[in-house]
Design a binder for these strands. Structure first.
Lengths: 207, 207
DNA sequence: TCTTATTTTAAACAAACATTTAAAAATAAA
DNA sequence: TTTATTTTTAAATGTTTGTTTAAAATAAGA
C-alpha cells in the first residue's frame, strides 16, 4: 500500500490555526488559509472535508486545554497560597505562548455556544469543588476571610487573562512591543498572588 | 418638501446593533439584519450605503464610550479609594446594560485594529496621567504601597470585566440565569474595591 | 387635484464563498 | 518498468454575499 510523505496536511493545519485565530471562523476563508499554507484550495476539502471539520480538528486539542488547565490546578490538594502562585505562573506561561487564544475562545463561544460546547464535550462542573471546600475550611480555621469559590476563581482569572484581552488598550498606553508586553505580564506573576493573598488575609489574626 | 414619517432607519439600526453584537462584523449578514428589522434588504444600502458604513454608524456613539469612560473616572481629582469604588460601581452598571460589549469590542479590534482605531479616533494616551501621579504621591506619603499605574488599571479592569467575558464558564458553574449572573456581578462591587485596597495597604503603617 | 420627492420593493448584479469533479501529476509498491 | 494509489491541480459547481437598478408605492406640497 502506497504511503506518501506529504506535509500538506500539517501545513494546512498550521495555516488554519493562524488564520482562524486572527480572523475567527466567519472571517477566515479557504483562500486565506490555502494562500498561507501555499497549497491548492481544494486540498482543504480533500484532507478535512468541510470548513467546520477543519476548524474543529485544528482546535480539538488546544481549545479547551485552556479551560481544563484551570480546574486541574484549582483542584490540586496543595496549600492555598502555593496554589495561587502555581496558577498564576502556569497559566501566564500558557497564554504567553498563545496570546490570541483568550479573545478567540470567548468570541467563538459567544457566537456559537451550542456547537462548541457540544463538540468539545464541556459539561457542567459540580459546585462542590475541592477548592470550595479548601476555601471554606481555611475560613473556618480563621486563616483567611470567607469568599465564594467562584468569586475567587473569576478574580484570579480576570487578573491573569485581562491584559491579553485588553492588549489594544495597552498599546495606546505605551506598551507597544511584544517585549514590553511580556515584561508587563511577567511582573504580574508577583503582583497577582500578592493581591489575592492581601485580600484573603484582611480581617484575620495573621494580618 | 415631502417628508415621510418612516421608522425604517431606526429599526435597521436597532436590528444591526443586535446582530452585530451577537455575530460580529463578519458573521452578520444583511439577510440577518433585514429579517430582524422586518424590512427589505435593499433598504440597508438605501439608508446606509455599505455594510461597513452601517457598522460604523451603529457603533459610533457606543463603541469607545466604554474605553473613554475608563479615563474619565481614572483622571478625576478625587481620593483614591473613592475613585476605586466609583470606577467599579459605574463601570459595572454600564457593562450590565451591554453585557456583550466587552467580547465584541475586543474581538473586533483584534480582527481589524487599524480600521477601528482610525475611524473612532483613538490616540495614544500619555503615560504621565493624573492617576499615575496620584498613585506615586500616595506611595511617597506612605499611605499605599508603590504600584505602576498601568498595572493598577489592568488589575481593576480585569476584575470588573472578566465575568462578562467568561460568562460561558460561569454557566458551567451554576450561574446559568441572568438573575444569578447579575447577583454575582453586583457582589463584586464590594469585593473588588476591598481587594484593591487590601493590596495597596499591605506593608504600610495603616494596615 | 396634480406634481414632486421620498420610500419601498422585486429583480438582477457581479463577486466571493465553500465544495465537487475529473483529470493530471506525483509517488510508492510490485 | 509497470501498476496501483495517493496527492495535487484547474475548472466548474451552486449558493450566498453585498450591492445596484429601475419600477412601484407612498406621502407631502402646490
Amino acid at each position: 500500500m502506497p504511503k506518501v510523505n506529504s506535509d500538506s496536511e500539517e501545513k494546512i493545519k498550521a495555516a488554519a490555526k493562524k488564520i482562524f485565530l486572527q480572523k475567527g471562523f466567519d472571517g477566515a476563508t479557504f483562500k486565506n488559509i490555502s494562500e498561507e499554507a501555499k497549497v491548492n484550495t481544494a486540498l482543504l476539502n480533500y484532507y478535512f472535508g468541510t470548513k467546520e471539520k477543519l476548524f474543529l480538528e485544528v482546535f480539538d486539542e488546544s481549545f479547551f486545554l485552556f479551560i481544563r488547565l484551570i480546574y486541574q490546578i484549582m483542584e490540586q490538594d496543595i496549600p492555598l497560597e502555593v496554589k495561587i502562585y502555581s496558577m498564576v505562573d502556569k497559566y501566564t506561561d500558557l497564554i504567553l505562548e498563545n496570546p490570541m487564544m483568550p479573545i478567540f475562545i470567548t468570541s467563538e463561544i459567544q457566537r456559537n455556544p451550542e456547537k462548541l460546547i457540544k463538540h468539545f464535550g464541556i459539561f457542567k462542573q459540580p459546585t462542590d469543588t475541592f477548592l470550595a471546600r479548601q476555601l471554606a475550611s481555611e475560613a473556618a480555621k480563621g486563616t483567611i476571610r470567607e469568599i465564594d469559590a467562584l468569586q475567587f476563581e473569576m478574580a484570579l482569572l480576570g487578573l491573569i487573562l485581562f491584559p491579553f484581552m485588553g492588549r489594544p488598550i495597552m498599546n495606546l498606553r505605551g506598551v507597544d512591543t511584544d517585549l514590553a508586553f511580556k515584561a508587563f505580564v511577567l511582573e504580574r506573576k508577583k503582583i497577582i498572588p500578592e493581591m489575592m493573598m492581601a485580600y484573603l488575609k484582611t480581617g484575620t489574626k495573621q494580618q
